[in-house]
Design a binder for these strands. Structure first.
Ligand SMILES: [Mn+2]
Ligand SMILES: [Mn+2]
Ligand SMILES: [Mn+2]
Ligand SMILES: [Mn+2]
Lengths: 221, 221
DNA sequence: TTTTTAATTTAGATTTGCCTAAATATATTT
DNA sequence: AAATATATTTAGGCAAATCTAAATTAAAAA
């Protein structure tokens, strides 16, 4: 497989993520995320088009080719495996892993990544609850689900709150739940559908169904 | 601490190693090791002199400053810790670790390296038997010693053979001992000073004192 | 001590990845 | 359908890290 520079890899990966939201990625959109100027994006798109990694027509935006997509998934695989390693083995906190993985992901040895995967026992989700592509580039597509629908005893990660009111934030704050919090549902009570949940090393506690419906989590399949 | 590019780091590290042999490092000498042209070395030396990492007078060769030396040791620390990780945790073979570590060493997070060190339980030697600097940059200086002088039950790595005759090579070949072989002395017999040694997962076997005196190993302190 | 050889530096390019400012194409309003 | 605004591309430059070919300096040989 062809070998891209760290810069090219960052472009490819970012296009991949932007594509999940919009069909077509724009010059300004990509420039904003990558913290560069639109002119730089145009330069790079010409190069990536040459390498057949993006479809690109001037003024018409761009998207990854099949090859570009495959490459993007391999970068995401590296990124998330390293995040898992940092979190699980080196005891980094969930919000510290990203920036270091951002560098490690560019170390290109295929063998390194496959051995790392094996060493970590083939994890399926990174510390943010995002799925890790396997060595074939296959990835589970996870969508956000409300905590109320999580199966029991599986780690999930809070990724969204479907309500921005002060009252819900106060309650979440009180319970020390926020974006990124890892949570496990231990029990579901039939009477009022309240949930017993556990976060971090704390003793489990109970939250109402109405709160659980507003807390969106990733992963759990 | 200032942050150097991967390229600058490779220069600094290589100068450090060359310095161990010769007081003064030369333009051509460094160019040969780094696989670049002499003109590139001169360019880089000007830059590193500016950054006060090398002492350099045109036509007079160069050597690291105190700061350059400290920086070199931090790169060597990263390199050898990664080598140890690859060998010990990911089960790479001893001759595969170097090239991957050559890339990993440039990931610059201090926290990453110190946590990795801790995770690996503060190893003192890399898979080639070279000492790993601690987080203060302190490094044990190991010299080569003949296998006959190794203490019992400590892993050593064959790094040199003090005789190039066909007969010694035949014997080493027969015993499957070569540069890089990891060996442990299990017992020393008083009668003829022969040694019982163990290599890899094999059953221990005996070699003569005269052979053991010609096989030089690193590490064991 | 010259002369010759070898090592080193300088001059001038090239590539990658980025930038600013100006031009141009597309989209949105009137 | 113009006119205006916004998005995008082009033109021209710059810094890092490399190169080749041409000086230049130092070392070795005569
Ligand atoms: Mn990155
Ligand atoms: Mn992640
Ligand atoms: Mn390196
Ligand atoms: Mn080593």
């Amino acid at each position: 497989m062809l070998n891209l520079s760290a810069s090219e890899e960052n472009y490819i990966k970012t296009i991949f993520h932007l594509q999940e939201e919009e069909k077509n990625v724009t010059t300004n959109g990509l420039a904003a995320v990558l913290n560069t100027r639109p002119a730089s994006i145009t330069d790079m798109m010409k190069k990536l088009k040459q390498k057949k990694l993006v479809h690109y027509q001037p003024y018409r935006g761009f998207r990854l080719t099949t090859g570009g997509n495959r490459y993007a998934l391999s970068i995401i695989r590296r990124h998330r495996l390293w995040e898992f390693f940092l979190f699980e083995k080196l005891k980094f906190s969930w919000d510290e892993v990203h920036s270091v993985a951002e560098e490690l992901e560019h170390v290109s040895s295929k063998k390194l990544i496959d051995k790392l995967d094996e060493f970590l026992d083939f994890p399926r989700f990174d510390p943010h609850g995002d799925p890790i592509p396997d060595n074939q580039g296959k990835i589970l597509k996870t969508r956000q689900i409300p905590l109320s629908e999580m199966p029991l005893n599986r780690t999930a990660v809070v990724c969204n709150v479907g309500d921005q009111s002060a009252s819900i934030l106060e309650l979440m704050d009180h319970n020390k739940i926020g974006i990124g919090t890892r949570v496990e549902v231990k029990k579901r009570f039939d009477f009022d559908h309240s949930l017993e949940i556990k976060i971090r090393q704390q003793v489990p506690f109970i939250i109402s169904e109405s709160l659980a419906k507003k807390i969106f989590v990733k992963h759990g399949a």
